[in-house]
Simulated scan of single mutants.
Amino acid sequence: MQTILYARVSTADQTTAHQKNQAEQAGFKIDRVVADEGVSGVSVAFADRPEAKRLFDMLRPGDTLVVRWVDRLGRNYDDVTQTIRSLMAQGVVIRTVINNFTFDGSTTDPVQKAIRDSLIAFMAATSQAQAEATKEAQKAGIAHAKASEGKYLGRKPSYDRKTFEAVCEALRASVSVSEVARMHNLSRQAVIRIKDNPEQAEAALAKWH
Results as ranks from 00 to 15, higher is better:
H184R: 09
Q189M: 10
A181R: 01
T96N: 04
S174M: 03
Q138E: 09
E132W: 10
G91E: 02
L73V: 09
R155V: 13
Q138Y: 06
T96A: 02
F164V: 04
V93H: 02
K151L: 06
N185A: 08
S148W: 07
V175C: 03
L171D: 04
A170H: 00
F122Y: 13
Q200T: 10
A137Q: 07
D63N: 11
I142Y: 11
S106K: 15
A147W: 08
A124F: 01
K113H: 14
R72P: 01
A125P: 10
M123K: 12
S158G: 15
G150T: 13
A89C: 03
G141T: 07
I192T: 05
T81V: 15
L73Y: 01
H184M: 10
S158P: 07
V93W: 02
A129P: 06
M88H: 07
T83S: 13
E149T: 09
M123S: 08
E136D: 14
K162W: 09
K151I: 02
D71E: 13
E169F: 02
S176N: 11
A147I: 05
G141V: 11
G91A: 06
K162S: 08
D109C: 13
A89H: 10
D104Y: 07
V191A: 03
A140V: 11
V70Q: 00
Q90E: 10
V80I: 15
R116I: 06
A133W: 05
F164A: 13
C168M: 09
Q112E: 15
G74E: 06
A137G: 04
M123D: 12
Y152E: 12
N100H: 13
D79W: 02
Q138S: 11
Y159S: 03
E149S: 12
Q128E: 15
Q82P: 00
V175M: 10
D104V: 05
M183F: 01
P157Y: 07
R60G: 00
E199C: 01
S148L: 11
L153Q: 12
A190V: 11
I192W: 04
E132I: 11
E149W: 12
S158K: 15
N185G: 04
I94P: 00
P198S: 03
A89N: 14
G141L: 10
A89E: 07
E199Y: 05
K156Y: 06
R155E: 10
T64Y: 00
A140Q: 11
L87S: 10
L73Q: 01
E149N: 12
R60N: 14
S127Y: 01
D57C: 03
N76R: 14
R188H: 07
H184W: 13
P61F: 05
E149M: 11
I115T: 14
W69V: 00
M123F: 15
L59G: 00
T163C: 13
D57I: 00
K139I: 14
I84W: 01
G141W: 00
L153T: 10
G105R: 05
D79T: 05
T96D: 00
K113I: 13
D160G: 15
D109Q: 11
